[in-house]
Design a protein around this nucleic acid. Structure first.
Lengths: 147, 147
DNA sequence: CAGCATCCCTTCCGATACTG
DNA sequence: CAGTATCGGAAGGGATGCTG
């Protein structure tokens, strides 16, 4: 189990501490793991784009590649497998020549889509304000660039 | 602008194509950029944990470090700066000895929290089913491990 | 058409040491 | 206490070539 490198350092102190303050009022440590699992899935570079593309109909592999700007073959395949494993999409291959494979959202995938749409709406709503903050923050950092 | 390596390859073909199919019924390419920006922010390893910890009261630097299991000093500082730049948290330092610095959610940060809570709820609700799919998927892959 | 395997460069991030 | 600076391993992800 390679527990040998649990040497206590200044970082990551809390692992060895009893009686810690709860991390957050909205979830416990275990919940935090779950949400991070979902965020790792959803926060990756392509998953959300794929889910969005599959939103209302099954799409075949090459059509996905065409529909999603900039995705590489490798990442398309990898992400689809990942989504499949999580139970968000299904893969159906039709024994024809030439071969045809269609990917579709499962019910689970659809339910996640609607949740993600809330985030998309937030993004659209607050995009301008975020930009404002960013440029202001960056401008403040440029003061006295003495070099 | 180093446009020289725009040699058209089999990957990433769409960049050179006119008349492409829209990527998704729920957002256009530009929206996709915004949502990915937010996902990059929120999908990173620590942002959500920090936001959750700041949910109902300002918290000082060292208390954040204690409250969030496993975070390194480097990542705490980095993520806080990132969240600041985006306008989700504020930093207030009190000129005392010893120094005290408190981080707090802005209104923007609070609004994002409530959106993220929806995702947290989804995670909790569907965690068990996701696990089911994962183990089933993995079991299927273990068939005929001939080596 | 629908992938898989390989190479390789970039980014992320934890550990560690040092400062106002 | 609240950071900054630097290093090195691990992971992410694009390009390319090959297969059923």
């Amino acid at each position: 189990m390679k527990a040998e490198n649990l040497r206590r350092t200044r970082t990551n102190v809390r692992a060895n501490v009893r009686n810690v303050p709860g991390p957050c009022a909205h979830w416990n440590d275990e919940d935090a793991d779950f949400i991070r699992e979902v965020l790792d899935l959803v926060g990756d570079k392509w998953s959300v784009l794929i889910i969005g593309t599959l939103a209302d109909k099954p799409v075949r592999y090459s059509d996905l590649a065409d529909a999603i700007p900039g995705i590489s073959q490798r990442m398309l395949t990898l992400t689809l497998k990942h989504l499949q494993r999580t139970g968000l999409v299904t893969r159906t291959s039709y024994p024809e020549v030439p071969p045809r494979v269609e990917y579709a959202l499962t019910e689970l995938g659809t339910s996640l889509l609607s949740t993600v749409l809330a985030l998309a709406a937030w993004s659209a709503d607050n995009h301008a304000e975020i930009r404002r903050h960013q440029t202001e923050y960056d401008r403040a950092g440029t003061v006295r660039r003495t070099v």
